[in-house]
Design a binder for these strands. Structure first.
Lengths: 192, 192
DNA sequence: TAATTTACTTACCGTTCAGTAAGTAACCTT
DNA sequence: AAGGTTACTTACTGAACGGTAAGTAAATTA
């Protein structure tokens, strides 16, 4: 049987994704070369091509991985009791997650230069899923607000997501510390 | 005299900056090569090195150019009469400018990979100047708001700028049209 | 134990990039 | 008219990149 062998393959593959995820998160897609990934794993570059078809495939898997973690983090926020508490937690968890996984935010916001069309498709897919996760929570939070009839929920959701992405890029550039709790509270204050 | 000659130099230099500005705005710093710039001008690459010391210097001049245009656009907004009208105009002009000069927004938000430290310095400088342009207008707009004592003007300014940058990156990725008037009004509605 | 598959390595290819050395036609100065 | 400057071009370098061809030691299968 190939069970044990497959386990080995699996582990190496997982290691590659894990390492690539860290590197892509610290730098950018274009800023990380296949050699960089290989070097960090103490293997050679062609070994990567044994496990994956190329750089794009590795990146795709990294994005999948990161988005799964993100979904869990948002799902957890939705467990709060009131609408505005939920929204507060979503904002805070989004920011906390984004700080650790700069890679995902980068992917959602930045061009990959001669963008691989498949990756582009995947990213657009992820963006839609994020909206789908967050929009109901925004809606619930505004359900009993005075603003309810003056706002376009879809647009406010977009504004909120853009604000968080903008903040994360802002803080990933300047390397100041970010108090996600304070910022999340301030956003809630301004919104209600 | 070298007056006419200098004029020729000046014009070519200006042409290079103008062309580079367009290209950097359509793609990114790393996505535009010296050859690309030269080709678009129907000159050869080394001709660029006759006028500038390298790619970084060209980019620096492009950023200067773009920021000057931006400042004018914000100064114009400050001519409005009421505080909230000023803020509305700032938001709208910021978004309109950013749509045309994606390059500037990119620079403010994205890494340049092996970031040239001089360019980094310049970008941080520009970011500060933008805050200095916008913060007084935010302050004025909130002067007679109920929220006045509940908010941190500095943080709200940061939030606003992040929101606009986030929006601009969002829309530069998806190539949908953006109704800057509607968005600006929605932001003002949410804020007051 | 012989054949096969797995998980790699060494050595290399083609391309693209920023940047440079050396030459040159047109113009200006003296 | 000679010499110098300006504004380039042609031809090139060296490094980095994604990716591949060919070989190989160790483990698995038959």
């Amino acid at each position: 049987m190939a069970a044990e062998q497959q386990n080995v393959i699996h582990n190496t593959k997982k290691q590659i994704i894990k390492t690539a995820r860290k590197l892509f998160s610290k730098y950018t897609y274009l800023g990380v070369s296949m050699s960089d990934i290989a070097k960090k794993l103490h293997i050679t570059k062609p070994a990567l091509y044994y496990h994956f078809t190329g750089k794009a495939e590795i990146y795709k898997k990294v994005l999948d991985d990161a988005f799964n973690g993100f979904s869990l983090s948002i799902a957890e926020a939705a467990k709060e009791k009131t609408g505005s508490r939920k929204l507060y937690k979503v904002i805070k968890n989004y920011l906390d997650f984004g700080l650790k996984e700069k890679n995902l935010i980068d992917a959602l916001m930045l061009k990959l230069s001669p963008a691989d069309p498949q990756i582009r498709k995947q990213i657009i897919q992820i963006k839609k899923q994020i909206v789908n996760l967050i929009q109901p929570i925004v809606e619930e939070a505004f359900a009993d607000s005075k603003l309810k009839n003056k706002i376009d929920i879809e647009m406010v959701t977009l504004l909120l997501i853009s604000t968080m992405n903008g903040l994360l890029l802002e803080y990933s550039m300047l390397k100041e510390k970010i108090d996600t709790e304070k910022i999340s509270k301030q956003i809630i204050t301004v919104l209600f």
